[in-house]
């Protein structure tokens, strides 16, 4: 059995498929990143108890 080399015929045959999968994955990364940016920047200002006086948190049970 010959070992797979960089020039194996398989790489040529599967190039378009690999490219497609690669681009689809890149697209997914871009979407998750974009969605994260939107969710974080549009959310209410997030605060939590950190041993400092935060009047905004009073009465919220936190």
């Amino acid at each position: 059995m010959t070992p797979i080399k960089a020039t194996h015929d398989l790489h040529k045959r599967r190039f378009s498929r690999n490219l497609g999968v690669g681009l689809a994955l890149l697209g997914l990364v871009a979407i998750v990143f974009g969605l994260t940016v939107v969710k974080v920047t549009r959310g209410d200002p997030m605060q939590a108890f950190d041993h400092a006086v935060r009047p905004e948190l009073e009465g919220t049970g936190q």
Binding site: R13, G20, V21
Partner: peptide, 17 residues
């Protein structure tokens, strides 16, 4: 499948279909 004789190599378009 690397060494199997698969007469046709599916393309990305086949999966998209």
């Amino acid at each position: 499948s690397i060494n199997a004789t698969r007469s046709y190599e599916p393309t990305f378009g086949d999966y998209f279909a």
